Computed example of a mutant assay.
Amino acid sequence: MLSIGGSAKMTADVLLNKIFTVNSLRKAVNNKNGDLYKETINSLSINNGEIKTNLDAIKNMYKYMYKSHRNEYFYKNTLINKILLGRHSVRTSTAIRELPISNNILDLLIINGIGQVYEIKTGLDNLNRLKDQLNAYYMAFSYCNVVTDLSHLDDLKELLSDTPTGIILLTNRGTLHVEKSPSEYNDKLNSREIFRILRKGEFENIIKKNFGYLPKVGQSKYYQECFKLFKTIEVKKTQKFMLDELKKRSSINQENYSYFKDIPKELKALVYFSDYKIKEYNVLQEFLNTKY
């Protein structure tokens, strides 16, 4: 792979941010954004001899990200590969991305008995909003981590030294090193924020489980009446019930597990969050094996 610099690198980085998304992968597979796909590969100055199939093209794009552009997707994909798939299992654990909570968007949550938050701060990010973000996440979750690179490490060690928040370093070798383990912290847990995270069917499951019935009121008052019941449950219990419901959101099941297992590591996060059916897994594999 040739090294690229200046404006050419900026162009390549922007294109990579666009191509490694759930929607862009779907479009590429269905031949609906071929121009963007080819433009991204061309921008990286890859030797054409290295690319025989679409899988080769994707591996080369990802290799560039590993060396020169560790964007948010690279971080999330590393967390999925190293923690969800490496330390846990998709059969027993669930990952959720971009979860809205108190006017913030949580980067990644992995549930395996407990719920662990992973807030990503790449070398391209700043730390200005981190305190507010963590305060929000602790309203619903007891374990939070910041995942970062060497450029932020010293600042984070100082900023988080007397806090329960963990620090995980994404090393130059692409591994995850725990610089500081998270501690359980429940002081900010808030029933309303936990309730807001849940979908209608999810909070109904919790209310039925605890009270045996749902409020019999008009639609305009239904949400508020459900919350009145919900908030009477001890907040640590509501957190557990919430995690149980969120864990059910995983799209990987007994039927599609063997298909997901065969997805290349470069695309694990994109496919995990795509809710693919068997037919779509087959179409994706056909695309990957097709001559570029």
Rank of each mutant, 00 (worst) to 15 (best):
L150V: 05
Y64E: 02
Y185W: 12
P100R: 11
A140Q: 05
V90Y: 00
A28S: 14
N71I: 03
L15T: 01
G166H: 05
K247R: 15
Y137K: 10
G115Y: 08
S181H: 10
L85Y: 02
L16P: 03
S151I: 04
V29M: 00
L270W: 01
K268Y: 00
K131Q: 11
Q239N: 14
L25P: 04
S274W: 00
G166D: 09
N60H: 14
H177G: 06
L160P: 07
D187N: 15
N81A: 12
I263A: 06
T53D: 10
Y213E: 13
L160W: 02
L159C: 04
L246H: 06
N17R: 14
T290H: 11
S183I: 10
C144Y: 01
K63R: 15
M10Y: 06
D132R: 12
L156G: 03
G212I: 07
D56E: 02
V217S: 02
E184P: 04
L79S: 10
T238V: 15
K188A: 14
G166R: 06
N103G: 09
I80Y: 03
V235G: 06
G174A: 10
L124Q: 11
Q254V: 09
K221I: 10
L150C: 07
R173D: 15
S274E: 07
Y213F: 14
Y73T: 10
V90P: 05
E119Q: 06
N54I: 03
E193A: 11
D149V: 03
K63L: 15
S251A: 14
D35I: 13
K209S: 14
Y292S: 13
I278C: 07
T232P: 05
L130K: 08
